[in-house]
Design a protein around this nucleic acid. Structure first.
Lengths: 177, 177
DNA sequence: GTCTATACGAAGATAGAC
DNA sequence: GTCTATCTTCGTATAGAC
């Protein structure tokens, strides 16, 4: 159900995702939703953000040993698949929450921060200077999130792949320097 | 009123911005809104996107002669001011529409595309190779949009400035190459 | 042309039958 | 514990008095 919430929120945004629809979407009755999620919609949104964030963090620690380029490739491949499989309906639920909501913005903010910090670690392990790693990590997180929206909006993998190509260049240069 | 719509949509998203609130926000009665915007909320959203897009395009053509770095600086300065002045409530309405809505996604998609094309022109005038200019333009548009969300989310100009610093490096390198 | 009052549906949430 | 029926509030949109 949390996964369903993440999917719907990513695709249509928080405001456009009603608890009713979500219940129908996941096959659960409306009442049960409030039994399992007494906090209502806010709790559901929060758990969806946490769930996605956890998955991203797993991906980061799984590929982190192989360096920042491997992380980037894993992200891009993942998003490419998601976007195409959903016919360009999917998007990042964390970004959606961060853009829309103000109540549950805390967890979204924390998620971005965690992703950034994990990326900084990866970059520093590859010898990138601390200050540079900090800046580069924000570029990577920010531009991938932005690129997902661009690609979804253009209904084409091209923007995302363009961003990936440029990021690869920057990462290679930063690691070498 | 269109400006107010853009502001509210940027801050709270499309779904969370009701026509009622917007009328109150701009001081207009609810009925008048439907007199001037017979298309209702959809028309309002669409015009807000068009209005913002026009402003961005103006900024692009005004600073474009001075090169991509000047464009970047203008954007960052603009967003910095907006974010701080709004106590990190502001965000890009076009991104909000592109993330949330499906009906009015067309104009948002067109806006991104136009910004990209204008940036490609600027880059090519500075001698950047066509293919590279295309990719780099997507990186710039995507990462600035992403960076605005990151900075808003972190309630700090830092992510945006980090992205700007990295972009400056990439642009300088691309122009030189 | 401007605005108030209202229609109608859908939202979040809950009470209470099973 | 599960689910249906319902309460209240707020959404978009409009009708019709000025």
């Amino acid at each position: 159900m949390v996964a369903g919430a993440a999917e719907l929120i990513g695709a249509r945004g928080v405001g456009a995702t009603s608890v009713r629809e979500l219940a129908k979407f996941t096959g659960a009755p409306l009442g049960s939703t409030y039994h399992y999620f007494p906090g209502g919609k806010d709790q559901l949104v929060e758990e969806a953000v946490g769930w996605v964030s956890g998955r991203i963090e797993k991906l980061l620690s799984r590929t982190g040993d192989q360096g920042a380029l491997a992380v980037l490739d894993a992200f891009i491949a993942n998003w490419r698949e998601f976007l195409i499989a959903s016919d360009y309906q999917a998007s990042c639920p964390v970004l959606a929450v961060a853009t829309e909501d103000t109540v549950t913005a805390g967890p979204a903010s924390a998620a971005f921060s965690r992703w950034h910090d994990l990326l900084v670690e990866v970059l520093r392990r590859e010898g990138v200077a601390p200050k540079r790693a900090d800046r580069l990590a924000w570029l990577i997180v920010g531009s991938i999130e932005g690129a997902v929206v661009m690609s979804r909006s253009q209904r084409s993998p091209e923007p995302m792949e363009a961003v990936a190509a440029e990021l690869r260049g920057v990462i290679r240069e930063a690691v070498k320097a």
